[in-house]
Amino acid sequence: MRVCVIGNSHIAALKLGWDASVAADPAAWADVKPTFFGAPSDGMRHVKLEDGFIIPKRKDIAEHFQRMSAGQDKIRLADYDGFFLVGLNVSVKRILRFYKTHAWVGLSADAEKTLVHPQFVQEFLTERYGSTRLVELATMIRSVVSTPIVAMAEPHWASWIRQGQAGTADYGWDEAIVAGDAVQIGAAFLQSVTAALAPYATLVPQPPETVQDGIMTAAAYNKDASRLISGEGGGTDAAHMNAAFGQAIWPLVRQALQVQL
C-alpha cells in the first residue's frame, strides 16, 4: 500500500514512529510504503492543484518536499493507494478559544460566558474546522482521486504545559480541566472535526492511551521531542510528540486505510 503522508511539523513524530516501527518489526510493515511531503507551520497553504499534481507555489516549500520525499518536488496523486493528512492547523486550541467566552449546556456554569445550545457548538465548530488547511487539502485531493484519505489532527499539547510557562500562550487547558469540562471539550473536538472532514476524509482520533484529561497528551509521548525534532534541548516544546507517539498512530492509520480499500 503506497501511502502519501502530507502534513506540517507534526509529520516529524510520524516519521520517527515509522522508523521505530519498521526497526522493531520489519515484516509487520512490509506492505506499507509511506512517502512524506510537508512544510512547517502553514506552509501547505502555498500549494496548488494542477493536472493531478499538488505543486508548491514557493521554492522553499518545493525544497521541503524534495528533502522529505527523497527527490520529489511535487505530489502526483495517482501514484498512491491512500493519503494520510497530518496536523495542518487542526487542534483543540480552536475550541479552547471559543470556551473562553462561550459554554454550552452540559458544561459547568459560568455566568461570564455566553451559554449556547450544543447543536450550535457542533455546527459552529464544524464550520470553523472546515476552514482549516487539513479540510481544504482533503477537499482538493478528493476532487481528483477516489482513493482513501485519512487524517489526524495536531496532537494535544503535552500535559506539563497545563500550568503555563513563560513565553507560551495560555490556551486555557488548566481552566477547562479544573472546571471539569475538558473531557466534553475533547469529545466535541473529535465530533466536529469528524463532521468537517466527513465528505472527503476519515478522522483517525489521537490514540486513547496518549490522551490525558481529554485535551492533553500524556507527558511520556512528548519526552525528548524537542531534541529529536528540532535539535533543541530542555523540553521546551509541548506541541510536538516523539517516536512513541508516532508508533501508536501507525496501526490506526493502516487499519483506517485498509477498511476503505
Binding site: V105, A109, L115, Q119, F120
Partner: peptide
C-alpha cells in the same frame, strides 16, 4: 435554536441563563 433539549432541567438552565 433549531432543536430542543433532551431534558427539562437543561432547558431550565438555558432559560435561566438567558434571563440573567
Amino acid at each position: 435554536d433549531p432543536s430542543g433539549f433532551a431534558s427539562k432541567a437543561e432547558l431550565v438552565v438555558y432559560r435561566d441563563t438567558h434571563l440573567a
